[in-house]
Nucleic acid binder design. Structure first.
Lengths: 345, 345
DNA sequence: CTGAAAGCGCTTACAG
DNA sequence: CTGAAAGCGCTTACAG
């Protein structure tokens, strides 16, 4: 693109565009292979030659062409991160963690959003697959079969999701949910509703199961309330159903829904937590801003993003790691203002 | 990567890894050049041949290798989006818009964050430059000289920033600020403080200038109050200085700071807006969640992200568009609860 | 309209 | 330790 106007006095033998290893080789008086080796397999040349080549490359402002490098090696040095919804604050931590880990390893991160649609997610994965060395699926809306197919195409790691034969980074949901259940129990709640997330969400099922299991073991009556989209609107939309239920406390699939629910409840004149306790998951930006603040089960998502990339990178080196997974990452309760004892009266 | 176990019965002449145009050519009984043409320059072959090649490619699950394509053409079909801080909700809209526009044009988007550091941003730009066809700088912390240098390396477009010789997408700050000033004026405020953002932020200066200009023309006394980081913490940290000033209303560089300020004010027992009005910029997720909700100057950031990519794409086709820019995008006031008249007494 | 051939900028056995 | 050569998978003038 940066085509310098041709025809000027040539200080250097006619270099158009970016310098190549041939330009470096000529100037350094060595062969192109030597330049390649000096730059990409340090330590395999005489220190003197390597030094000379490096200096010459530096002087010329040489930068290896990634496409040219990728062609013979088959390694693009690029990773993809697939997200269901980039505006969901829950992905921040993941994105930042993944970005950092990728950059630290010299990899570039491609981020693609599929706006909560499974088919779109698959199409995106297929589209980016050929330009990357591996894929991290965060908040995937794909079923196991589709994920398996994509996993055969490229090394892949899942976050917040498990699927046969694929490496994954998942939360230890029970840990945080146990704390949450205990918290609600101590506050005197017995009827606890779970406002469900998208049917295609793997964590939604894990959260529901954990709540059901832990709730029962504490003698709570736990039941499911249909949710809808995992958004503010989805949460608000579930309010009618929550109000119609016997629940004195509800746990929403995520904080976005919990906040939506909270706002709908307050608009309806309900006292939270006096008349209804509300809790969520993820501890997103915003959960601490509401009145009352949202009680939530948090997880180290930034760390999860980092680990997903690290696991993927390890897999690129040793394909047999394809199935291995990190131990589940811990979750914990952050008790805030939206949960409390029922106001007497 | 997906090396099928070798040695099985070969239905097709030994295809290891992904199929290439040679595999398609062999199966279709045409030359590789013909396959290439059929797939990348539709309409230049007989309809019959093109159809045949397409079907064969489909049947084989052929996907052109982007690196191999990029090598002779010099086009990577990839764009980069550089962000100062990915956790700042203000970038959501930009990211989503840019992502959508890029995908629509068949481009892949690389997203890189430089965590509010100018040098890191430059290093990142240099690093990704060789793998992309162009760069969008959103919320850049670089000075004009650095941006100019990078702009000579690759086509570039700036969002929320102007720099000599570079295309940019900037807000019409005056529009929203005029509304804001009028709003504050009507509420009876005279002493208005501006809590400044980062010195390296171009929009920070535009916001301050617009506020100063519009404020003066309405007879307000507008003055600057040192801010700090453009974060919740930065806003909270400025509270002491705000309280020590004569301001009855403050406008913060962005909503993040406005929210931080609001919370610090309330912690200090101040009535907002009874004793102090607070406004921000950007209308981020969260501004509507606080109590009171945040009055803010909003902008169509998603549209801006889209336009930035469209402008960049246009530039790739016609390099002379390098300097041209879209008209400034409109901004407008969203008056909410954090601004009001001073409580009497 | 289609094929043969050269070339994009690297890497990497293969020799020496 | 270093060079010459082939090859990665495409595209694209150049012929016909």
């Amino acid at each position: 693109m940066s085509d310098l106007p041709v025809g000027g006095a040539d200080q250097t033998p006619e270099i158009t565009g970016a310098p190549t290893i041939y330009d470096v080789a000529r100037l350094a008086g060595v062969s192109p292979s030597t330049v390649s080796r000096a730059l990409s397999s340090p330590g395999r040349l005489s220190a003197k030659t390597e030094q000379l080549v490096r200096q010459t490359a530096e002087q010329l402002g040489f930068r290896a062409n990634p496409s040219a490098r990728a062609l013979p090696t088959g390694r693009t040095m690029t990773l993809a991160l697939l997200l269901a919804d980039i505006t969901n604050p829950v992905v921040f931590g993941i994105v930042r963690g993944a970005e950092r880990a990728a950059a630290a390893a010299g990899y570039t991160l491609v981020i693609a959003e599929s706006q909560e649609s499974g088919p779109a997610e698959r199409a995106t994965a297929l589209r980016v697959a050929s330009s990357v060395d591996g894929i991290v699926f965060a908040t995937s809306r794909l079923d196991s079969a589709a994920l398996g197919e994509l996993g055969r195409l490229k090394p892949a790691v899942l976050i917040n999701r498990e699927a046969e034969g694929l490496a994954s980074i998942v939360p230890d949901v029970d840990r945080g949910v146990t704390e949450l259940v205990e918290h609600l129990h101590l506050l005197g709640h017995v009827d606890v509703g779970y406002v469900a997330g998208p049917p295609s969400s793997w964590v939604d099922r894990r959260r529901w199961e954990a709540l059901l299991r832990q709730g029962r073991s504490r003698g709570l009556r736990v039941f499911e309330i249909p949710g809808g989209e995992p958004t503010l609107e989805g949460g608000a939309g579930a309010f009618e159903r929550v109000a119609a239920s016997s629940a004195t406390a509800v746990v929403a699939f995520n904080d976005l829904m919990a906040i939506g629910l909270l706002r709908a409840a307050r608009r309806a004149g309900l006292d939270v937590p006096g008349s209804l306790s509300i809790a969520g998951f993820d501890d997103i930006f915003g959960s601490e801003l509401t009145t009352p603040t949202i009680t939530t089960v948090a997880a180290p998502l930034e760390r999860a993003g980092e680990q997903a990339v690290e696991l993927l990178l390890a897999q690129l080196g040793q394909p047999d790691l394809g199935t291995r997974s990190f131990p589940p990452f811990p979750t914990h309760l952050i008790a805030r203002g939206s949960t409390g004892a029922l106001a007497t009266g």
